[in-house]
Write a protein that binds this DNA or RNA. Structure first.
Length: 283
DNA sequence: ATGGGGGCCTGCCGGC
DNA sequence: TGCCGGCAGGCCCCCA
């Protein structure tokens, strides 16, 4: 799930359940995820009203009436399961507890949000709302790709002289915040750029073309996530999934979707991560 | 400073 | 059917 579009989809799914409402009680079933939970987290997440839910990169920020903000990161396998709440015309009953249900928030109206994370690469932390931006996990993040702080001149400056592959550069959250392995592969396909091309070797025109493509890929994925939410049929109340047709990601050995291309999609490993690309369309 | 690799965890899938 | 290796959308940290 968890690249920017998936996290945004989860945030939007949580909005009607949490925003403006009171978390009555939070139960914590594990000592921590990637890091230990902050002290007394269960208490600090009980009897507090949720003022709003924000997203920064792949993090969800829950602002609380206690002047604290809950930071949530889904890691690789984190899920937020909603139950006991009317969503459209569907009512989700509380399911039986599952393995890896680490944190359970029960709202005053009976709705329940369960954080389930098998691999425990996710994270939760609490900090003063006023200093949320200074949190170590947020402080060094680059601009939001869909925000005003991201554009051609910024990206050109960040890539200038860099000897790292463009794949790695776009994955580096200090350059821009929110892209993950899937969407970097998809962006580079649309841009016709081989993932191993050195970032510093891109022309200004290529960088200029990247900016709208990044926005386009993310926007489409958010739109797709939203549509899957409206199409809620599963009784388990699971959020964060959306079906999406990828052009290259996960398609090793399959034929390129470019009309008339006919080339097989290839997979290489860069910095330990799989990169999928069309050797014909991407140079 | 910069770039690359290891490691954290569990689950799943394909091959034998 | 069972076991084993490889792989997974995240990120921090250490090393050269």
């Amino acid at each position: 799930m968890p690249e920017l579009p998936e996290v945004e989809t989860v945030r939007r799914g949580l909005l009607p359940v949490m925003e403006g409402k009171v978390i009555a009680v939070t139960d914590v079933n594990f000592s921590g995820l990637r890091w230990p939970f902050p002290p007394r987290m269960a208490e600090r997440l009980s009897n507090v009203r949720v003022l709003g839910l924000r997203r920064r990169s792949k993090y969800i920020l829950v602002d609380l009436s206690s002047d604290e903000t809950l930071l949530i990161h889904l890691g690789m396998s984190g899920r937020m399961l909603i139950s006991g709440q009317m969503i459209g015309t569907f009512v989700h009953d509380h399911p039986a507890p599952q393995k890896h249900d680490h944190v359970v928030m029960t709202m005053e109206d009976g709705a329940r949000i369960t954080f389930n994370d098998a691999r425990r690469f996710g994270a939760m932390d609490l900090m003063a709302t006023a200093r949320a931006d200074a949190h170590p996990l947020l402080a060094d993040l680059g601009p939001e790709p869909l925000g005003n702080g991201f554009g051609e001149s910024y990206l050109a400056a960040r890539l200038n002289g860099r000897k790292t592959p463009i794949k790695s550069a776009l994955l580096d959250q200090r350059n821009l915040a929110g892209l993950g392995n899937i969407y970097v592969c998809e962006v580079l396909f649309r841009a016709g750029l081989h993932p191993a091309r050195l970032a510093g070797d891109l022309t200004r025109a290529q960088i200029a073309a990247l900016v709208p493509l990044i926005r386009e890929v993310l926007s489409e994925a958010i739109a797709a996530g939203g549509s899957s939410l409206r199409d809620y049929r599963q009784a388990d109340g699971e959020l964060g999934y959306f079906q999406h047709t990828f052009r290259v990601y996960g398609r090793e050995g399959e034929i390129c979707t470019t009309p008339g291309c006919g080339t097989s999609i290839e997979r290489i490993v860069q910095s330990g991560r799989s990169s999928f690309f069309c050797p014909q369309c991407q140079a």
